[in-house]
Design a protein around this nucleic acid. Sequence first.
DNA 1: GCATAACCGAGACGGTACGTCAGGTCTTCTG
DNA 2: CAGAAGACCTGACGTACCGTCTCGGTTATGC
Lengths: 198, 198, 198, 198
Amino acid sequence: MADDQARRHHGNRHGRSERARRAVLNAADDLLVEHGFAGLTMEKIAVRAGVAKQTIYRWWPSKVDVLLDALGDDLAEELTPPDHGDLRRDLREHLAAVAEFLTTAHAGAVLRALLGQAQHDPELAARLRAGHLLDQRARDRLPFERAVARGELAAGTDLDDAVERLIGPVHYRVLVTGDPVPRSFTDALVDRVTVQDG
Amino acid sequence: MADDQARRHHGNRHGRSERARRAVLNAADDLLVEHGFAGLTMEKIAVRAGVAKQTIYRWWPSKVDVLLDALGDDLAEELTPPDHGDLRRDLREHLAAVAEFLTTAHAGAVLRALLGQAQHDPELAARLRAGHLLDQRARDRLPFERAVARGELAAGTDLDDAVERLIGPVHYRVLVTGDPVPRSFTDALVDRVTVQDG
Amino acid sequence: MADDQARRHHGNRHGRSERARRAVLNAADDLLVEHGFAGLTMEKIAVRAGVAKQTIYRWWPSKVDVLLDALGDDLAEELTPPDHGDLRRDLREHLAAVAEFLTTAHAGAVLRALLGQAQHDPELAARLRAGHLLDQRARDRLPFERAVARGELAAGTDLDDAVERLIGPVHYRVLVTGDPVPRSFTDALVDRVTVQDG
Amino acid sequence: MADDQARRHHGNRHGRSERARRAVLNAADDLLVEHGFAGLTMEKIAVRAGVAKQTIYRWWPSKVDVLLDALGDDLAEELTPPDHGDLRRDLREHLAAVAEFLTTAHAGAVLRALLGQAQHDPELAARLRAGHLLDQRARDRLPFERAVARGELAAGTDLDDAVERLIGPVHYRVLVTGDPVPRSFTDALVDRVTVQDG
DNA sequence: GCATAACCGAGACGGTACGTCAGGTCTTCTG
DNA sequence: CAGAAGACCTGACGTACCGTCTCGGTTATGC
């Protein structure tokens, strides 16, 4: 088995150690949740992961790269909207999933940390958008696009605008006010947007 | 004049040096814009301000405290909505001012940096909210409250909800997507909210 | 009474406060014994003496000046050799007194600290010699000079040489080896010197 | 050659950099002579040696430890008495070497500084004695012991006493009066001691 | 089936910034 | 006008991480 093979191998001439990679990403994840972004140092990741510092630097240029890697495909996996053939229902479920993701410790903590760091790191901001946020935006549009295809929504509707009105207040609560984002809040948002556009 | 007296004194038993205070806040402001949040170190602030490190630590426990102080009353001064007796006009001007503030280098950079840092510093998040964001939320509500008082808006309207739908997408663009926030965008947001509620 | 007046006056137009002077010298003495030379800081002297730092700097340029002042006339008072009209007896008593002074906590600690500091502070070394050590050397010679005057000792004897052979080993023990300096040791020294020269 | 290998390596798992060690000891030596003991700071040693401060602290807990190391085996190398089979000649040469060592800038400055510091640092005093002074005392005794073995000196002679009468006045001059210690002075001392005991 | 090349752990290295402490100077008010 | 109080600038302290480097050891090819 691949996992078993990976666990044993230590040094070889073709390719890196999957064991070390996993250990680093897990350690980074854990340390972020435990000690926050400032308490996340390459030094501590190395110790926690039982890995040499050089091994981390060999594969990731900085700690934000580790986090970008740790974020991985979580967004795609957890934030792809469902398709029930009903715009309002799709949006309700999707927006609730977005809120859940952002406010839940493990999954959202990494993204929030990266978004926070991106505020004073334009290069990270660019990579974060290119690597994750644009894709997510495309996924957020899907329910609307399908509604247009079904004729449920007028063809000329500004879908990005609709997405922003939907997703904006959720991010505002999470990133700025810190208020909880209950289902009632997301449902009401969906109602506003669909009523107005319907 | 008090300011004149303050500027001359250097160190004495009756209070701190206003000159040093100003120099630190300005230096912090400048360094943040020039080198970003990471390039903003106590060491460099001290050098740039021509001030001893100890003097900074005497009055501010950390660099985020310096920034909180530097943010000062900028929000209140620049983001108090106008009162023309017309909800839509008040909101249009106010929302444009908010967008301008957040995206403009000097003024908004400090707030964006603090919001970024607050993502991985709950204690800062709490202070930022208590010290500035709650007050700003109250100011954001003002146009709506006046509209209710004028009878322009129904008495039962959920004002906080309206504010969030207005302000949320603007913050989303600034903090997440990084897209510009043109006047057309903010005006359209105001139209959505007022039409719907009117 | 002078002391009474001194105790009360705090700030005045007629000269310095004797109370402050005493407090500083005593504090310096105590701190030296308690915490050693490194633990003797102007800051701590000021706190212990209940005196402003500036008051210390007004009257003593540095902490070694405070110690030089604290040393005061102790040497002259305690290390003036007796005159019994008998060289050996005078020397025995005197040398024992020297050993006692150097090894006893309060009195000798200040001198040892200053001698130690003088090893890497030539300016202090010069002042220490000019202010105290030359006078002490003159006092150390007294028994020999009186013996010459009495005819007990030949006129051509090199008195400084004799003093050094007497006093040198005592200082060597105190400053270098740290061995105790018992009466038997000093008496034997006196015997060597007087027998040889007698 | 081991030294050659050591010189090239920079930092690795098998021990420290000999290059850094040498640089630190030399820098400490130079700075002590140039600026005195007070002017000898870890900070300046690091800069002068072109070495990170942490590297110094990794191997030496304090600046006196650096000096103790810098003193190294200088004493043993330079202050081992010769053996001509003639007590007086051995002592004359040895005592002159001691005087030379103590008064010469480079070699003696370190020892004088440490002796000075030891006056107000009992822990250093103990280490200095255990590490260097006891061994030196043993070397100082050698000429006498050989003289006893040869029958040149009576078996019951108190050798330590003789050493102290010889070495004491030299240290006294160096550490207390600061007078020069010419060959005539040391020769006369040897004569006194050997005549008396012969 | 043995050399060898890529990766691994360990950790010392030159650095930057941290937050603290003391030094010595200054200004103000009080007695 | 001396003394208290204490803020100021300076510079060293000892520590934590940074990112780079060298080293010896492990293993999976590939000659």
